[in-house]
């Protein structure tokens, strides 16, 4: 498939539904928490994989990604919301230093034969993992309620006194 910037944006924005929910347990054998799920376009023609990773030691270091799974070619990661992990350098050598940022696949990177999502921009809409996941869920247009799949982050219970 020839990926143009508009095609990539279209893949990101196309309405999606969850077809394989994440496991209830987020534990990995290593030092991060993880969830993996599969989503598809409403007509079941396009398939995607969504992952979340968060360091157990540095909670501000996380990544939430959208991977497109074409039926006729290799998978391609098209979007990734990252937390704070130090420094990032773009293909044009501009830097993002210790700020939340999102990676997006670009036609230019694909043509250059480098990592498709090497281009990153500063993210202003989130600063924590929970915020990032909520924004990501909305931005990639998953129609299901996020609380159904990630109740641990968003179903806050009020106690007897009405406090969170």
């Amino acid at each position: 498939m020839d990926y143009t910037d508009s095609k990539i944006r279209e893949l990101i924005k196309i309405p999606k539904k969850v077809v394989k929910p994440p496991a209830k347990n987020s534990k990995s054998q290593w030092m991060y928490e993880q969830y993996n799920l599969n989503v598809a376009s409403e007509n079941n023609k396009l398939y995607f994989y969504v992952y979340t990773r968060q360091s157990t030691e540095f909670k501000e270091d996380f990544s939430i990604g959208l991977v497109y799974l074409p039926q006729d070619s290799e998978r391609i990661r098209i979007l990734r919301y990252n937390g704070l992990h130090g420094e990032h350098t773009n293909p044009d050598n501009t830097k993002i230093i210790n700020k939340c940022h999102f990676h997006i696949a670009t036609e230019n990177c694909i043509k250059l034969g480098i990592k498709p999502d090497k281009q990153a921009e500063i993210a202003s809409e989130y600063s924590t993992f929970e915020e990032a996941l909520k924004v990501f869920w909305k931005d990639i247009n998953i129609l299901d309620d996020i609380k159904e799949y990630f109740p641990m982050y968003y179903n806050l219970q009020l106690d007897f006194w009405g406090k969170l």
């Binding site: 030092m31 991060y32 990773r53 990604g65």
Partner: peptide, 9 residues
């Protein structure tokens, strides 16, 4: 543990 976390993407 961050190398293995990044790899796992």
């Amino acid at each position: 543990g961050l190398t293995l976390m990044r790899l796992s993407y």
